[in-house]
Design a binder for these strands. Structure first.
Lengths: 202, 202
DNA sequence: AATAAAAATAAGTTATCAATCACTTTCAGG
DNA sequence: CCTGAAAGTGATTGATAACTTATTTTTATT
């Protein structure tokens, strides 16, 4: 929670607006996040928001850009160390879950975007994120296949869709039970199951 | 698509309203489905909707009840035949995917509900659906464990969350690519992978 | 200390949408 | 074929939320 200081320089105000929106999303549905509430959270008038963003959806775009950058940074860092691909993949899995647990508003925002049918600017950013994330997972799966950790009969495409699904299953459980920490607790066992599905049988 | 007939008896008008809403949800985000659009789809005035539903959210409640009843009917029927539990589970998986492909608005409506934080009447219905569905999957997993198809070291809880996640992974892919038929095509391979994760190794 | 530029505000406007109500049209039963 | 009940409509209302504009407050520079 950023402190509510008035008369911030523009770039800091933009950052603060993004954070305020994320904080609101942690406890409210995105559709009921109004510019008035965002402003109130920063201790400002509603009109002030439009000093820094030309439209409301410009706010959502900046929020999504922040989310994409931050999540990719976290998982890339997690993926970095060491040769055993399946361990790196586990680190990615856990980093992703930890990120969502830390910013519980993020899945809500993403789900809101998935409802849109026509392509919006925000959706474009989501698409890029999903693509980059998918490439990271696919490269780890490929590495695991070459090192003989992963059964070579497994399709990388199917496995990476399953990987994402495993995360989603946890997220949905967390959202439904209104307890995002349940995700963190169940994550290791869930990954172990995923691992079993692609591991070379002995 | 129901034919647009005026002066329907009340119970048929209610059914028609539910169907019209589902059809709209297939091509629009739930937030932009207004009572005016629902009415227009049936060739009626906006005011007419309120002859049959006291509020707009009463419409969503009825829609969700219909979805819950219909989906459970489909998957229960799929689960019915035969002893090999893992085959019954596959039938459930495919039935679920087929249902979503047939009513592409359904995941959008569900995702919209998942964003709500405070418990709404619609959310209550979703909760019941998820519980009933979870029980069905759990009972099949239990049966498979007893028949020796499933490794007894696997937690039913974790496996059923993974099952749901596998479906979700497909749904998200379908929504993002704006092509729900991709789900149907990828479903068998995805289930095969899930099966590998719980099957007894030989 | 003076002042210009930047940040924030108060008080609007406009559009949209759920919900209401007085009134009209249609249908079904005697 | 008549009539009362049920189904539907047009016009309106009140609330809400994004966006605008004229004005004020603060900050930074010289």
């Amino acid at each position: 929670m950023t402190k509510a200081t008035k008369y911030l320089p523009a770039y800091k105000r933009r950052q603060a607006t993004v954070q305020a929106t994320l904080e609101l999303a942690a406890k409210h549905a995105p559709t009921e996040i109004t510019t008035a509430k965002i402003a109130a959270r920063m201790g400002m008038s509603q009109a002030a928001v439009f000093r820094h963003f030309s439209t409301k959806s410009a706010v959502w775009e900046e929020v999504m850009r922040w989310v994409a950058r931050e999540l990719m940074e976290q998982v890339q860092q997690a993926a970095a160390p060491g040769p055993p691909a399946l361990n790196a993949l586990e680190a990615v899995f856990l980093a992703h879950v930890a990120f969502v647990a830390q910013y519980p508003g993020v899945p809500r925002i993403l789900f809101a975007e998935l409802q849109q049918v026509s392509p919006t600017p925000v959706r474009e950013i989501v698409w890029e994120l999903v693509r980059d994330y998918g490439l990271l997972v696919a490269s780890l799966l490929e590495r695991g296949r070459q090192s003989g950790e992963i059964d070579s009969s497994i399709s990388t495409e199917t496995a990476s869709s399953m990987f994402l699904g495993a995360v989603q299953g946890l997220i949905i459980k967390g959202l439904l039970s209104c307890d995002m920490d349940i995700m963190t607790r169940s994550a290791p066992a869930t990954y172990a199951l995923f691992r079993r599905s692609i591991e070379l049988k002995q």
